[in-house]
Design a protein around this nucleic acid. Structure first.
Lengths: 154, 154
DNA sequence: GTGACTGCAAAAGATTTGCAGCCAT
DNA sequence: ATGGCTGCAAATCTTTTGCAGTCAC
């Protein structure tokens, strides 16, 4: 974890930004909750546990900065809030998500599923792809299992 | 166009909703601006031209209703607003978008590009796909051309 | 002391809700 | 007269901004 902080620190410095204590606390929260898809408010509450004096505006400003530096990706699952997701180290593309419409759980997929599709887009539509967002909505493993008893017993 | 209104009317009736004048005006605006990706506010302003007495809240309620009935899809390109996009007749899946990061234009892609990928998701992740959202961010045809002179003349 | 950064409070937007009235059945 | 639907205004929620104070150099 420390080396990831270091790396982010360097990224900030390379653009003459500083890794202030508030920013570091925010990054640590993101690292510690990498699997969750935290909203700004979520991050704020978690950061506040370690650094109670921090302001919500600072969290927003930090997340926006990290977003510009491509350290995090800002995503939106259609509920009213933006969520912030750390990029995996060296990940060139945004990863994909499986959102369960029953329980709301979110699973991540790191594989690059879209290589062929992107080639098609570049060739056929003449559109130069820089990034993508792919989210599947459906029913997760757990909720599928949960649904079976109700059906089979009827 | 009329037959599409009829169809939507039937869809509403089948769930015992009515196609009131306000709702019809809203649907017409959506039909007439099918290529654009209108925000609720955009729709409101356009509806107001034909039916000045309509309220913004009604537009929101109508759009939400249409969204539940899968007549429109609610999408979010990362700016702060939701946009509403008519589903093509008979379209089983949501269509895809190419968003230009230079000029902001949005192009639609009807082709189903994700058949294979969905099979993979269902098989390998055991996730039952119901719908998906795929957006590519990049540089559109026009902006690519616009960029060439600046590079080649240097 | 200068410029980057912060916290707080206020502002700005987008969307939702409460409510009284209306309209068709 | 009932229930769905509407307009308006107020409320809510997320995010941004203005500003005065702080800190590192």
């Amino acid at each position: 974890m420390e080396h990831r902080i270091e790396r982010i620190k360097k990224q900030l410095h390379s653009q003459s930004y500083k890794l202030t204590p508030q920013r570091e606390a925010t990054v640590r929260v993101l690292l510690e909750n990498e699997e969750d898809h935290l909203s700004a408010e979520d991050v704020y509450l978690l950061v506040k546990e370690k650094a109670p004096e921090i302001g919500l505006a600072t969290v927003y400003r930090t997340l926006e900065l990290l977003s510009e530096l491509k350290v995090v990706d800002k995503i939106n699952f259609g509920d009213g809030v933006s969520r912030y997701d750390l990029r995996k180290e060296g990940a060139e593309h945004f990863h994909h998500h499986l959102v369960c419409i029953e329980c709301g759980s979110v699973e991540e997929i790191e594989e690059d599923l879209l290589g062929d599709v992107e080639k098609l887009i570049e060739g056929q539509w003449n559109f130069q792809v820089k990034d993508h967002r792919l989210t599947f909505h459906g029913i997760c493993r757990v909720c599928q299992k949960a649904a079976i008893p109700a059906n089979s017993s009827s």
